[in-house]
């Protein structure tokens, strides 16, 4: 599934979509960043409610395909700036994490 298809399925709002529309490798759910870094597959969709600048650092370093903020959680100002600077795909959906992830 491509990021653009995921956006449609989740009825998500696009916050940042600078990169090429890549094929998502799978999904990972979690808010504890060390778990995400250690275990999220490369190019996956990362479902989380964590919305600070650390999310961008982890997404960049762990080669996350797209960050999906769930429950309509909005990125804070630092995260917003960081995803644009680092060219990270970030979308927001109203769905809870479980509901969002099972749509993949």
């Amino acid at each position: 599934m491509k990021i653009t298809e995921l956006i449609k399925i989740l009825d998500a709002k696009v916050i940042s979509m600078p990169q090429q529309d890549i094929e998502i490798s799978g999904g990972y759910c979690g808010d504890l960043l060390s778990f995400v870094m250690g275990r999220a597959p490369e190019k996956c969709a990362w479902f989380t409610i964590m919305n600070n600048a650390n999310v961008a650092a982890v997404a960049a370093l762990a080669d996350i395909g797209v960050v999906v903020l769930c429950e309509n959680v909005q990125p804070d100002g630092h995260l917003l700036k960081a995803v644009k600077n680092k060219e990270i795909a970030l979308i927001v959906t109203a769905l809870p994490i479980f509901e969002a992830a099972r749509k993949i």
Binding site: L32, S34, N52
Partner: peptide
Amino acid sequence: GFGAGMGLPN
């Protein structure tokens, strides 16, 4: 988002 106790193990 930190404090999972995974830093050094990772």
